[in-house]
């Protein structure tokens, strides 16, 4: 009963803002493209063609072609899929571990909190790109390593946010009540604490999802992304950097795509926060 009221308010607030609706369409398109790139992409993203090398954008090649004559638009579409897989997988890693650490640390307090918090602080001190770059530099760049690297980078953010949220509800009556009833701690964390911090969890997940895409893109730009010929958004931009003057579209158009995707996820995140995060409610 509490839940459905919550949902109603959420939807009402969400729909009120037209920006959210436009954005929702973009997000849906993004999800569709991620699942069915072959429906949209006009060419095989790996197919080379020596007759069309470095062609500027046209009606046959919306985003032009690269030095191998591959269609950049098709590569971008498949790139979205790959980038999404990387960002999502790494977010799942950091969300799972980060949330676990955050709730543990917030719920128990004391020395557990101290230990976890100090380690989290230390990881937090690394700028995300620097830490991801460090891990990839040490262990080599492959899709798997990239996922692990980005995953590790975002653990502290989840841990910190969820720790704060857990502390703020820990002292509330219904949590204390469950303790009195004699439920065991893990059960309380899972059935009582987590549902009550889930809105913050969702907001954190969304906002960091977009920065994870940017981190993958930056690594790709620096030449440390997924190895070729597999396209990712970052890798496409990185490949184009050799040709910034001769063929700027190779960097500009996939870059634009990244900006639009990140922007719409950010708007979604902002919208969700306005609705879900108690701090932002009037």
């Amino acid at each position: 009963m509490k839940g459905s009221k919550y949902m109603k308010r959420f939807l009402k607030n969400f729909i009120k803002n037209p920006l959210n609706m436009i954005n929702l369409i973009i997000i849906c398109a993004l999800i569709f493209v991620s699942f069915f790139p072959s429906v949209i992409a006009p060419y095989n993203p790996l197919e080379m063609d020596s007759r069309s090398i470095l062609e500027p954008p046209s009606f046959t090649h919306f985003f032009g072609t690269d030095q191998f004559g591959r269609d950049v638009f098709s590569r971008s579409i498949y790139g979205i899929q790959n980038s999404m897989i990387i960002a999502l997988s790494s977010m799942i890693i950091s969300a799972l571990l980060g949330t676990l650490l955050g709730i543990l640390s917030g719920y128990y307090g004391g020395w557990i909190d101290q230990v976890i918090s100090r380690i989290i602080d230390a990881f937090f001190a690394f700028p995300s790109l620097v830490l991801a770059l460090f891990i990839v530099a040490l262990f080599g760049s492959s899709t798997f390593n990239l996922i692990i690297a980005i995953g590790i980078v975002y653990i502290p953010i989840f841990a910190r946010t969820l720790r704060g949220a857990t502390i703020s509800i820990k002292e509330l009556t219904f949590v204390k009540a469950s303790k009195v009833v004699g439920k065991n701690n893990f059960k309380i964390m899972w059935t009582v604490v987590f549902p009550n911090v889930s809105s913050i969890f969702i907001v954190t997940f969304t906002t960091n999802f977009s920065t994870a895409i940017l981190t993958e893109a930056s690594l790709g730009f620096l030449g440390l992304g997924v190895p070729p010929p597999e396209p990712t958004l970052g890798g496409l931009v990185g490949q184009g950097t050799n040709f910034i003057i001769a063929a700027p579209w190779l960097t500009l158009l996939p870059g634009l795509l990244i900006a639009v995707i990140v922007l719409s996820i950010n708007i979604l995140g902002d919208g969700l926060r306005d609705v879900l995060d108690p701090k932002f409610q009037k």
């Binding site: 790996l46 197919e47 080379m48 030095q67 191998f68 190895p227 070729p228 010929p229």
Partner: peptide
Amino acid sequence: FDKIAQVVQSQLS
């Protein structure tokens, strides 16, 4: 090297 490998990969496919 990696670029040549990509072309060879595509041609052999």
